[in-house]
Design a protein around this nucleic acid. Sequence first.
RNA 1: GGGCCCGUAGCUCAGUUGGAUAGAGCAACGGAUUUCUAAUCCGUAGGUCGGAGGUUCGAUUCCUCUCGGGCCCGCCA
Length: 520
Amino acid sequence: MLQATVESLLNYALLSLGIEKAQYKVDIPPKLELGDYATNAAILAARQLKKNPFELAQIISDKVKELDKEKLFSKIEIAKPGFINFFFNESFIQQSTAEIIAKDHAWGQGTRGKGQGSRILLEFVSANPTGPLHVGHGRWAVVGDCIARILKAAGYKVESEFYVNNIGNQVEKLWASVEAARAGQPTPENGYGGAYIKEVKGDNKEAVLQFILGEQKETLGKLGVRFDRFFNESELHEKGEVKEAVSRLEQRHKTIVEGGAIWFKSMEMGDDKNRVLVREDGNPTYLAADLAYHLDKFSRGYDRLINIWGTDHHGYVKRLKAAVEAMGLPAENLEIIIGQLVTLYRGNEPVRMSKRTGEMVTLQEVIEEIGADATRFFFAASDVNSHLDFDLELAKKQSSENPVYYVQYAHARICSIIKKAEGQGARGKGQEDLSGLTEPAERELMLKLLSFPDVVESAARLRHPHRITEYGKEVATVFHHFYEKCRVLGNPARLALVDASRITLRNVLELLGINAPEAM
RNA sequence: GGGCCCGUAGCUCAGUUGGAUAGAGCAACGGAUUUCUAAUCCGUAGGUCGGAGGUUCGAUUCCUCUCGGGCCCGCCA
């Protein structure tokens, strides 16, 4: 919200000066002396107008001062190449902090998001129902769930969906593997030989599928990940949507028949070869079913579809988008997030995660070993574009010093203070007068808290849950710093600030799906 | 051969459309507790941002080349 405050006044100033607005930036400068927020607007505008950036910065900052009727800023300075540095007035910061308490659960929820109220379907995990979820699935589960929470906070209507490939070769192989194991025979070729195969229950293919899916759901539940919908691939076939998808392409002359199979002419759209839609034997391929799935998703009226896929599917993105476009659907509304895989280690030894080996470490085991909160924080805390080396030994060993506990501890500490204060009859809630909060540590904490909506907005826009974990660590750090310097009990204004910190931390943890304990 | 992603402190990772003296946690070392939770705080040390060019007021960020690592290129899903 602070960022937005600076931006709106700045835009107004640029407008009244007749300067065309460039893609300038408003952010927090590296040093305290350089202001609470700073912008490079003058530098960028100067380049376009071929003017001296330093002089232009002076002109713009004078204009902002003139327009700042409410005295939001105590000081506006210009610096070296042409930065404009803004210093907020104490009263504005204090008032804004008081609003945090009034907003409570709504604090942090965006009001600037561009797609307010637009509908998003977020599909993730979508593991094959052929075995337990592995650690990689855990990453997508957590990232997807956090993105859903963040987008909701930013004002979108989000539904989450898990696509179940409950039909096809892999299901046949699964059943064959189960039957073989029960008969004491070796695993069929390309079958599933994991230890879990012997423990699978169910008298037929469908029952086995449901059993495994049930276990997957249970694991996800332990992680706090719940889906609005589990969508069965079989439904697409039953409803004739697979045929419809293929015929849509045929009608648009995007197919060719060759060798008894129907091909999608994806080469026309930049693919290096054409792709089979319907096999020689008349059975549709995974691609055909997936096209039908996306046709189905689009027909449900979402404004945007987001899929989270592992990097092992990245080559498939272009093809799917090309086909979606070829079906006459708005491919620009299909967004695919490609995440890098997780490499699991036990010490220095990599652990395989394949379902075909018996040595698999399941997501379930990881959650049992290090706990759901730590697992969630760990997966949410890194950019999905980076490989993740997950060392089980390390995760266990460091569990008591995991950053998640650092953030949770700050929350627990706050709750303890508030409890004690309430025991003394003090109240930090309501319309406290915060004008006494002038210490540097208090100011630092208020500014940090007040940047929360900006952080949520940016995390939503970039689909970056790790911005939230970073922010949580920052809030905890600044709070602990404040705690060392400022005694709270007996000071109602500080108690209100502590309550605002509690609300912010709790909302941060809520976005991450992590517990906010009142005691530790 | 073609494509996508990554390379930042001893380790695991942040660094937002290019910004000011590159950050955090863990590990290491030295301090802090008569008072609100020490799962905390303060300090020290630790870096040619893989390498080389280029673009410009300014590059960890963008472009080209290069080295190293991961992943993909099925009538599997």
